[in-house]
Design a protein around this nucleic acid. Structure first.
Lengths: 353, 353
DNA sequence: TTGAAAGCGCTAACAT
DNA sequence: ATGTTAGCGCTTTCAA
């Protein structure tokens, strides 16, 4: 299984390795006849230069690492697709590091992030993108933040939708608060006054911010926020079902429910339907994320599009800027979410009596 | 930005690089005091050995490449998760190569497969996993097949759910035909006689096989297959909608529809509901894949689970066997799909008249 | 227990 | 236009 090297090619072509390298990289003129001779040998042996050796000397690998919590959550593949689209143009290849939050206790997840961060460093990636995990924590521990800050000094790093204290990171984020606010305003505009907010985790900044937006919209409209209608308990369909179920058992129920993400929104719809309610006739429900899935349910979910693809593309482009030191890279890129009105929201039913 | 190397550590510790390497790899006894001295330097500088240099000499990279057509299709992340779970145990890292079929013409996609195949070879991955793309073709061109066969000679390669002529590849597959058969039998068992099959592509082997299973079940039950009720036109929700819409405009409509995958199934449900039908009361609908999404729609989709996670895990384990030459690797691993009965199927309505 | 030295496969001066 | 040679950062004989 001896693989062929530039030396083999050089010998058979009666040239030096330097010349072979030259035709490989087009880095200096080579006589046409020589070049052809070499090229045909390359084809003959299907020679592929060893990227390890090349990178070792060039100090560039063309690899970027992406660390995310759960590839199974449709939000991430969507972002990933955007990342890929942009990064491929620049010739990068991806290391996918899934810390597998879905079936892990949280500490284990952060440990994996650390592991992957180290592995990526060792593999000499040109840059790293982080999304989810510890950077989504509303209050991240000093040590965990420090680890990342340390990495940030050594290699280009960009966050998607998150942040960490103790250093200025390059970030591409969606305006979460605006998202929470806009979707709530949509509901208020429809005539709703009794609105709940469910889903997410109170220790995560996206949840905090979306809720913040929700409160702001309510306040501006002069509507009271009923704290018993605010429930954090996760981001999955199942959790959404549970939370909505709980809501529906209360003495007074809201006419509209803002869900922290699309999955919860879908769960909420399922719970509502199961309770014999019609959506949106009896209760309006909204999500946040804008994953394709949200358009696949019945009724189609009104949601805030977090513009996943663009998020991914923007992050890739910022990272590329950092890697290629093109000077003009923004530290903070903020994208505005977009309200997508579909079928799960409508005017509230007339209050009886 | 000079990164520290074994030489730096060695010098400061007054030892040779060989000794540093020894403590790094635990490859030979080192005096405790020396080891400590070195270790503390490693910590002090947060030294991380350069994996490129290491791999260059060891000829093992711990990297495996996975080539897939569209990370955005929920089937693939699911498989990927299984792959990760298993491969991580073995210490592998992933190159994700998305050929991005979703927004590409088909030739472009195959070109990307070729590109990625080459890149992966250059990066010296320890192994490659292919899923989707050309290996799903019912009849793949000689040249495209040859390319892959060539790769197969040089590096461990395993296919998930696919095959190619001209060589014996290591494969982990689901029994597609059984899937088509079982889901159809379920419908027949319920009392359906007028059953359609929609979705997929006639040039793809998974579609051909699922349809084959469908026909077999029908035949065994002595039921006629109406060719006008067989429609291939894709794997997406939108396509499912279209195909179902067409079906519903026919003079006679089926009482049950077998869809080639879950996405099409969901589209079919949407089209049916839009036409004022109730699922499953008026028409039963089934999918194939068993992605979580299928349990999120209303009504929840009856489907054949392709056991994505296990598929991924099995593939990873076969690949690991190949890489570590543990001798006992099966060339062909067949998994049986599993019928998951949910809410989208029921006994047919009584024929009027 | 430790060191010296020879590479792994490639690129990049520096010569010619 | 082409060859020589010195590394890139590490592991691994072979000696000591």
């Amino acid at each position: 299984m001896k693989s062929v090297t530039v030396y083999d090619i050089a010998k058979e072509a009666n040239v030096s390795v330097a010349t072979v390298s030259r035709v490989l990289n087009n880095t200096a003129p080579v006589k046409a006849s020589t070049r052809e001779r070499i090229q045909s040998l390359i084809n003959k042996y299907q020679f592929q230069p060893n990227a390890l050796a090349r990178s070792l000397i060039k100090k560039v690998t063309g690899m970027i690492g992406i660390i995310l919590p759960d590839i199974t959550n449709p939000f991430f593949p969507e972002v990933l697709a955007g990342l890929e689209q942009e990064a491929r143009k620049q010739g990068y290849t991806f290391f996918l590091c899934d810390t597998g939050s879905s079936n892990l206790d949280i500490k284990e997840q952060y440990k994996r992030e650390t592991q992957y961060l180290n592995i990526l460093m060792e593999k000499q990636v040109d840059g790293i993108i982080m999304i989810g995990g510890r950077i989504d924590l509303h209050k991240c521990s000093k040590e965990m933040a420090k680890e990342v800050a340390e990495i940030n000094k050594r290699v280009p790093l960009v966050f998607i939708n998150g942040n960490l204290p103790g250093a200025k990171f390059h970030r591409v984020v969606i305006d979460e608060e605006a998202g929470g606010r806009m979707v709530t305003e949509h509901l208020i505009g429809l005539g709703h006054r009794d609105i709940a907010f469910i889903g997410g985790y109170s220790q995560m900044s996206n949840t905090v911010e979306r809720l913040q937006g929700f409160r702001m919209a309510m306040e501006r409209a002069g509507l009271p926020v009923r704290e018993e209608w605010i429930d954090h308990g996760g981001f999955s369909v199942q959790r959404g079902k549970n939370m909505m179920g709980r809501l529906l058992e209360m003495d007074t129920v809201p006419t509209a429910v803002v869900c922290a993400n699309d999955l919860v929104g879908i769960g909420a719809i399922k719970a509502a339907v199961k309770s014999g309610l019609q959506v949106p006739r009896d209760v309006s429900i909204t999500g946040v994320d804008g994953v394709p899935l949200a358009a696949s349910v019945i009724p189609e979910l009104t949601t805030m599009s977090l513009r996943c693809l663009e998020l991914g593309r923007a992050a890739a482009s910022v990272l590329h800027g950092l890697i290629s030191k093109s000077g003009d890279v923004q530290t903070l890129t903020i994208l505005q979410p977009e309200l997508v009105i579909r079928e799960s929201t409508s005017v509230p039913m007339q209050k009886e009596a």
